[in-house]
Simulated scan of single mutants.
Amino acid sequence: MEKISVTKNNGIATVVIDNPPMNALGDQVRTELLEAFKDLKADHEVVAIILTGAGERAFMAGADIKEFNESGNPHKNKPVEEENVFNFIESIPKPTIALINGYALGGGLELALTCDIRIAEEHAKFGLPEVKLGLLPGGGGTQRLPRIVGPSKAKELMFTGDHIPAEEALQLNMISKVVPKGEGMKAAIQLAEKVANHSLQALSRIKRLVNEGSELPLDEGLVIERQLFSELFETKDAKEGISAFVEKRKPVFTHE
């Protein structure tokens, strides 16, 4: 792959978008992102995934507007899989961490919103400026952002196209942590290491329950929780975890 690189270490995969100068979301980046995440979904040794942008300027500063001008409607005549790369990342049954190391604008913010946890360096900026081009956020921003920050604030951000700093994004629960510039990867790896120590059998079910349950009435969500708990209880990892607790030792999970 030319614009996406993937490294793996101790159950953690790090996916880096490298499309200078601002890591824009073009067709090739979309295609390579989908390919990378499909590979990571199938890799049984990968438990947690970090997604970030190369350099210090941008996680991803939006879509490639030049491609809009040359190719027209970015949603028209696209293969279904390519169109749904954001949905694929959101639903991958492994915890994902977005490390936002600069601008996360337009499609860049929409991409970050597909991840389970978002960590930002203090110089990061966030926004959905599509309205300034006479457009709207077309990568899920109109749907995912209101679920995180509430409809009123989401509308304000989309109506104005304004950028907000990392500290304000933290107050809005758009991100979970702000760290000093240059320390984002360390913080992301520390978090990913904690996550990767646990059973993927449990992690994947937790993710599914939160993602699906947030859209369901409470009673329906509780039914699914009970079902997945029963499934999980029968796995090798659950038996190992319980045995290790009783025997006062650290569990050795095999993700089975």
Score class of each variant (00 low, 15 high):
Met1His: 14
Glu2Ala: 15
Glu2Ile: 09
Thr7Asp: 10
Asn9Ile: 01
Asn10Arg: 14
Gly11His: 00
Gly11Glu: 01
Ile12Tyr: 00
Val16Thr: 14
Val16Tyr: 05
Ala24Asn: 07
Leu25Ser: 12
Asp27Gln: 13
Gln28Asn: 14
Gln28Ser: 13
Val29Phe: 07
Val29Pro: 11
Thr31Phe: 10
Leu34Gly: 12
Ala36Lys: 05
Phe37Leu: 04
Asp39Lys: 15
Lys41His: 15
Asp43Pro: 07
His44Ala: 15
Glu45Asp: 15
Ile50Trp: 01
Leu51Tyr: 03
Glu56Ser: 15
Ala58Phe: 02
Phe59Gly: 01
Ala61Arg: 01
Gly62Ser: 04
Lys66Thr: 14
Glu67Pro: 15
Pro74Arg: 01
Lys76Asp: 06
Asn77Val: 03
Lys78Met: 10
Val80Phe: 10
Val80Asn: 14
Glu81Leu: 03
Glu82Phe: 05
Val85Gln: 08
Phe86Trp: 08
Phe88Lys: 02
Ile89Pro: 01
Ile89Met: 04
Glu90Ser: 15
Glu90Trp: 12
Leu99Lys: 02
Ile100Tyr: 03
Ile100Glu: 04
Asn101Glu: 05
Gly102Val: 09
Gly107Met: 10
Leu109Lys: 01
Leu111Arg: 02
Leu111Asp: 03
Leu111His: 01
Thr114Glu: 13
Ile117Gln: 01
Arg118Asp: 04
Ile119Asn: 00
Glu121Ala: 01
Glu121Tyr: 02
His123Thr: 10
Ala124Asp: 03
Ala124Cys: 08
Phe126Thr: 01
Gly127Ala: 03
Gly127Asp: 06
Pro129Met: 06
Glu130Asn: 13
Gly134Lys: 10
Leu135Ile: 12
Pro137Ile: 00
Pro137Asn: 09
Gly141Cys: 06
Gln143His: 08
Leu145Tyr: 04
Arg147Gln: 15
Ile148Ala: 14
Val149Trp: 12
Lys155Met: 13
Gly161His: 06
Gly161Arg: 01
Asp162Lys: 07
Asp162Phe: 03
Asp162Gln: 11
Glu167Leu: 09
Glu167Asn: 13
Ala169Pro: 09
Leu172Val: 07
Asn173Gln: 14
Met174Ile: 09
Ser176Tyr: 02
Lys177Val: 04
Lys181Glu: 15
Gly182Met: 05
Glu183Ser: 07
Gly184Thr: 10
Met185Asn: 06
Ala187His: 05
Ala188Ser: 06
Ile189Pro: 06
Ile189Cys: 07
Lys194Arg: 08
Lys194Thr: 12
Lys194Pro: 06
Ser199Pro: 11
Leu200Ile: 02
Gln201Cys: 10
Leu203Arg: 00
Ile206Pro: 00
Lys207Ser: 10
Val210Glu: 07
Asn211Met: 12
Asn211Pro: 05
Glu212Gly: 10
Ser214Glu: 11
Glu215Trp: 09
Pro217Phe: 08
Pro217Tyr: 09
Asp219His: 15
Asp219Ala: 13
Glu220Leu: 01
Glu220Gly: 01
Gly221Leu: 08
Gly221Glu: 00
Val223Cys: 04
Gln227His: 13
Gln227Ile: 11
Phe229Arg: 07
Ser230Pro: 05
Leu232Lys: 00
Thr235Trp: 02
Lys239Trp: 04
Glu240Asp: 10
Gly241Pro: 12
Ile242Val: 12
Ala244Cys: 11
Glu247Ile: 04
Glu247Ser: 13
Glu247Cys: 05
Lys250Asn: 11
Pro251Leu: 02
Phe253Lys: 00
His255Gly: 07
Glu256Arg: 08
Glu256Met: 09
